[in-house]
Design a binder for these strands. Structure first.
Lengths: 252, 252
DNA sequence: GGCCTTTCTTTGTGATCACAACTTGAGAGC
DNA sequence: GCTCTCAAGTTGTGATCACAAAGAAAGGCC
């Protein structure tokens, strides 16, 4: 809704970018980028993908909302073309669903989906964390500690978006150290799938998380205890998803 | 290479489909479908996706091979458009890789990737099988048995492609009964990733698989023994990947 | 002969167009 | 007043075009 991404919308009220006089001046953003700034190949698509991904991860797209090609394209100030490809990509990762008639929408959470995502996270993420453990340096531990302190601050002030963003950073800064090429993408796909549902967490931040499992994880990293790290991550996932809550979801 | 899919290539030697006189007669297949047969929406893309997916799963694409948009499009007799979207989709599932310059190629197998795929399969597939167990009917068990008998026949006659196709059918007919919406797609992504590497199995069919774990799995299904089923699937995966072989792969 | 430069070709990318299917809304008929 | 019908608008899909960047190949220079 909020067109915060639109870089330089045409001043005329024409939503459709067709009909403007200039043609093919700059293939990236029609209206910005004053024709001369070197734009790397495929830059537009990368920007579009990043914008949509972060919108999904922080819950800015509400589940069930219809996503239209031209709508998103206009919102981002680009042609429908790069949006098409990004949508295909995200649909393949099940971050978006294409219905039988081709319409695209943000997937709605169901009880069964919720349970399965929880199960999949519990299977994969402790393993990825354990893979990362030998590669985690002192600098990584420091970075993780700083992120966790910021998380505490967000929990204290009730900043839900900040909490979600930082929680994502905490987990993936650790996971990335695993050097995993297979398991890590699978985990990323899972986070994208419950991301939109995160919206439910608004206002609920600070009520749960009696035990700070991140601190336990940091201790396990310090002592190089893979079993303890696995346990801490598993507990963190269970508690975090518990905070989201499965109750009230349709069962199918 | 063999243009078996091309329905009605222009008689002229022009590889590029531009320049043909007829325009916009039928949006599906240019030259076929005599303008009146109802073609469901998005039919072309579905066909293209199916074609490429099965090529990947049965190892018809050799790892490292460059995949070009226009090349594939010409081979399938369609415009580059649907191929673009399918490629994006498959790249998102890591069945294809997009290099930094935008070029697309079939991913090459490395030792690390191989180990990780094996680990991921061992984590996920026994679980999916266990989820499927309560839903497996007598009819499913019969179907699985028939597939396995066909597998035995292929192993006897050294039919590698038949073996790979049927092995895929065996596993996924079972897995599909789980009704899983999250774990099953993850598993499918894994199969797509080691599919091209399956090519290595040509000629090696029949040398391994001393224990028939499929038969063990069928027995576990009969006795509704989840633990035994998990074990059978895990062993089947280990043996199957062992037949593919990790030796000789570059380590990174 | 080997290496560098230049040209031509190939290839991905973004934009736009045309079309069919779907959705939505208004209006006529009962 | 309700429902059915039909028209207008919306939306996804396939095709084609134009362009820039990256490769490949050919030619010239040392």
């Amino acid at each position: 809704m909020e067109p915060s991404h639109k870089p330089a919308a045409p001043p005329t009220g024409s939503t459709s970018p067709s009909g403007n006089g200039e043609r093919k001046s700059d293939p990236s953003v029609p209206g910005a980028a004053p024709a001369g700034t070197a734009v790397p190949r495929g830059a537009t698509r990368a920007q579009v993908e990043q914008a949509i991904r972060s919108s999904l991860l922080t819950g800015r797209f509400i589940p069930g909302k219809a996503v239209t090609l031209r709508g998103l394209a206009a919102e981002l100030g680009v042609s429908p073309m790069p949006v098409r490809e990004v949508i295909q990509r995200l649909a393949a990762e099940h971050a978006l669903v294409v219905k039988s008639n081709g319409r695209v929408q943000v997937p709605e959470m169901t009880g069964a989906r919720f349970d399965e995502i929880l199960k999949a996270r519990l299977l994969l993420e402790p393993e990825v964390a354990a893979m990362a453990l030998p590669n985690l340096t002192k600098a990584d531990a420091d970075r993780l500690l700083r992120i966790d302190l910021d998380i505490d601050r967000c929990l204290g002030s009730g900043d839900a978006v900040g909490y979600m963003t930082l929680n994502h950073q905490f987990h993936f800064h650790m996971y990335r150290a695993s050097g995993s090429q297979i398991l890590l993408p699978l985990v990323e796909s899972l986070w994208l799938q419950f991301g939109p549902y995160m919206r439910m967490v608004y206002g609920r931040v600070g009520t749960a998380n009696l035990v700070d499992w991140h601190k336990q994880a940091l201790r396990a990293i310090d002592t190089r205890d893979a079993t303890a790290l696995r346990q801490a991550i598993a507990s963190d996932i269970s508690d975090g998803m518990g905070m989201l809550g499965r109750d009230g979801l349709p069962n199918p």
